[in-house]
Design a binder for these strands. Structure first.
Length: 384
DNA sequence: TCTGGGGTCCTAGGACCC
DNA sequence: TCTGGGGTCCTAGGACCC
């Protein structure tokens, strides 16, 4: 199940005067990208992930909105609840998409196709939004089927017809084939999934390794990875791109603290501890570097994360202007699995303070308590 | 054209251990 | 003085997805 132009459709729902107009939800025009484009905007060649600058060139009269994530998340939760009434095996893969395994959950005498239509009608009735659905024996093929007839489409791939369904599709439509792989395959003369399916496995493995073998299997219709609900997160991170590249170390370090604060709060909210920290820096030429360190002891404490992140930042010693800075933590373990060390005492104070601050923020909002370090000057993120 | 922010998974070399 | 093989962890980079 895949919602159609989800963010834009929600905006049109809430503001009917937008209906029929080219609407784009995305980041700032300066350095942002398109998050969602209405079908009217897509007619002009606008699509998600395109830079806003290019989108505006292609569709100068588009209505550009910055997006309201809380509103989208609210509607998403409602949709996921509706899906959960059909089968316990629902795996949300993003805010507007989910896989359902109906194998053992079809009501007697009811086909998967009928359930799919029913879901589309129910979502439309309950939210006013349309979605597209693909029905197949595997996730990847179901996803490709749902992409085929948007919006409000329903495409069924009967068991045994997978390879025939895939063969005419352009190679870039195959899940796992991104920009890089598409280019390499096209250079080899491969244009459709059928072309790929006809190649010998040895050739694909030689060129692309394990990924080549997997792509070939999918191209031939073999797709059986299970629908797994509720997978535990393996990493949690925050990053920010500046409006203008930043050289000022003090400003960068302040942003780093801000990011660590966010990440730590998220870890605590999910009752997780980080075993490692990765600092990410992107420079003006878009070159991107990461610097990681495994922690002596897993933590969810802002100061511990910041201490390590700052150490990585100072060791990296960036001399060029920074376009993006980010902090990612992982791998993660559950708080329940914390191994208490003999030298744990000093961080206990931090943990208590942090949970007190989290509680205040939950009740009074994110800005109710802020660090003295972040209090006076605006952080670079405020400017971004 | 000039590239967000949230992730997952894979590769590969070197350290380290047995 | 010419030096194994296997497993796991750490770190960096990169492709891909939504």
């Amino acid at each position: 199940m895949d919602m159609d132009a989800f963010f834009c459709s929600v905006e049109v729902l809430d503001r009917p005067e937008l209906r029929g107009k080219p609407v784009i939800v995305g980041g700032g025009v300066a350095r942002g990208v398109v998050s969602a484009a209405s079908y009217e905007a897509r007619k002009f060649g606008v699509h998600s992930a395109m830079s806003m600058a290019q989108a505006m060139r292609r569709c100068p009269h588009a209505i550009v909105l910055s997006g309201r994530m809380e509103r989208y998340a609210f509607i998403s939760r409602r949709i996921m609840e509706l899906l959960a009434t059909r089968t316990p095996l629902v795996a949300p893969i993003s805010i507007d998409e989910a896989y359902l395994d109906l194998t053992h959950w079809l009501p007697p005498g009811v086909s998967a196709e009928e359930v799919a239509r029913d879901i589309q009608q129910e979502i439309l009735r309950e939210t006013g939004l349309t979605c597209s659905v693909g029905v197949a024996t595997g996730k990847a093929i179901a996803k490709m089927a749902s992409d085929l007839k948007k919006p409000n489409g329903l495409v069924i791939v009967p068991p045994g017809t997978e390879a025939d369904f895939l063969a005419p599709l352009p190679i870039g439509a195959l899940r796992g084939v991104g920009e890089m792989t598409e280019k390499r395959l096209r250079d080899m003369g491969i244009r459709t999934v059928g072309d790929l399916a006809a190649l010998p496995e040895a050739l694909l493995t030689a060129k692309f390794g394990v990924a080549g073998r997997d792509l070939l299997a999918l191209a031939r219709g073999f797709d059986d990875s299970p629908v797994v609900p509720e997978r535990q997160a393996k990493s949690i991170g925050r990053e920010t791109t500046f409006l203008i590249d930043v050289t000022d170390r003090e400003a960068l370090e302040r942003t780093l603290l801000d990011l660590c604060e966010d990440v730590a709060a998220s870890l605590r909210r999910h009752a997780l501890l980080a075993r490692g920290v990765t600092l990410k820096l992107r420079y003006g030429d878009f070159s991107t570097h990461t610097h990681s360190k495994t922690l002596v002891e897993p933590t969810e404490v802002t100061e511990m994360l910041y201490d390590v992140a700052l150490g990585l930042f100072r060791a990296a010693n960036p001399t060029r202007a920074v376009r993006l800075i980010g902090v990612t933590t992982g791998p993660l373990i559950s708080v329940a699995d914390r191994q208490l060390s003999l030298f744990d005492a000093p961080s206990e104070k931090h943990r208590k303070l942090a949970s007190a601050m989290d509680a205040i923020r939950d009740r009074f909002g994110a800005d109710a308590v802020i660090r003295a370090r972040l209090a006076d000057k605006p952080t670079s993120r405020d400017q971004a």
